[in-house]
Design a protein around this nucleic acid. Structure first.
Lengths: 207, 207
DNA sequence: CCTACCGATCGGTAGG
DNA sequence: CCTACCGATCGGTAGG
């Protein structure tokens, strides 16, 4: 049965939530321990009963709120009878997760810029076991339907599909006419599955 | 003929270079005006003869060193007889530009996180004229070779190809065996051009 | 372009 | 978990 969290654990969670919200909005060095304490509803000194330093707070936020918690299930839980359907389903989930969250990847950006990816190695160690499962999942789902492409490239390119849609949406959303955004994801998935080019066999000879 | 830059212009350039190097390594709020002054070889007070504020320095760095200065020529100057060859050539240029520069996109990340994309609109205004040229370029190069995909999606997905390769390389480079990185770009381009799936016409009926 | 300075705020801690 | 405090550093400026 569920343990009700102790007072201390509740406070710790409030600190993490407050710190996360401020970090993704202002960056690490742009956020002060006083701001975190205020938003968490405690005094500055109280922070240090839960975390040894500001960097320690970031580390806990980074592992607790890292996007992989939402992105990996998106990949492994997608359903469908063909690979085409599975990717479509994953793309739909992707849009749901990301809808109205323009700061979804900010924690990653902060880690890359302000921490020079200092925590990336630990993250990879945590994810390795899952990685194996994902590779097997891909092999099973895509069997016989894919062109000969190594499974790790399939994983990486699917994550890339996600990143490329999300980031270009950030860039183009501001300045493009709305009709440019409509169905953009459909086109991205279509290119990913079937390619940009016409089938060469279908091309008329040009000479 | 070339004007030799005045003393003041030389100092200004030294400040921008110093500020750029520090910003991409430490972020905006992680970099102090004193650090910038020291690296540029002047005293703190001297900075304010060239820039009104720290934010003013960042703005100038952002527009002077934005990756589009290198990415857009990569697209428009790529050569080849077929669209396949043009994309291959663009990918090759992409690797050249990015080789050994893991902080190539950091300015963009800083702008997104620490400035909430405050300068993005101005950037788009600056790029609009070029955008039209790129759309025409794509239409010309890809005529008759592409499946029916709107030109703006082609531009966006190609930028996405670049982003997806670059960022997943940042992530996977640390933890993956070296053979996983070999030829990864070739696979990315291959998927982009021809898709992940086998041609359905080539599939044996499964029932 | 430098020296010397301003008030404000930073991360962190002692003591209770 | 709070109050009150520490030394250090911040962005910026006056005056020359």
């Amino acid at each position: 049965m569920e343990e009700s969290p102790s007072r201390g654990e509740q406070t710790r969670k409030a600190i993490l939530q407050a710190a996360h919200d401020l970090f993704v909005q202002q960056g690490y060095h742009g956020t002060s321990m006083r701001q975190i304490a205020q938003r968490a509803g405690i005094a500055l000194g109280g922070l240090y009963n839960h975390f040894a330093s500001k960097e320690d707070v970031f580390q806990a936020v980074f592992f607790t709120y890292h996007p992989y918690h939402e992105v990996l299930p998106m990949i492994t839980e997608s359903q469908g009878n063909t690979l085409d359907e599975v990717v479509q389903d994953a793309a739909r989930r992707m849009l749901e997760v990301v809808e109205g969250r323009p700061d979804f990847l900010n924690l990653m950006f902060i880690e890359v810029v302000e921490f020079k990816s200092a925590h990336a190695q630990q993250l990879m160690v945590d994810l390795l076991p899952r990685g194996v499962g994902i590779l097997q999942h891909i092999s099973r789902v895509g069997e016989g339907q894919m062109r000969p492409i190594p499974p790790h490239i399939v994983v990486r390119s699917f994550l890339g599909l996600f990143l490329s849609y999300y980031i270009t949406d950030l860039v183009f959303a501001q300045a493009s006419p709305p009709e440019f955004r409509q169905n953009a994801m459909q086109y991205f998935v279509d290119i990913y599955l079937h390619g940009l080019l016409k089938d060469p066999a279908a091309l008329p000879d040009s000479k």
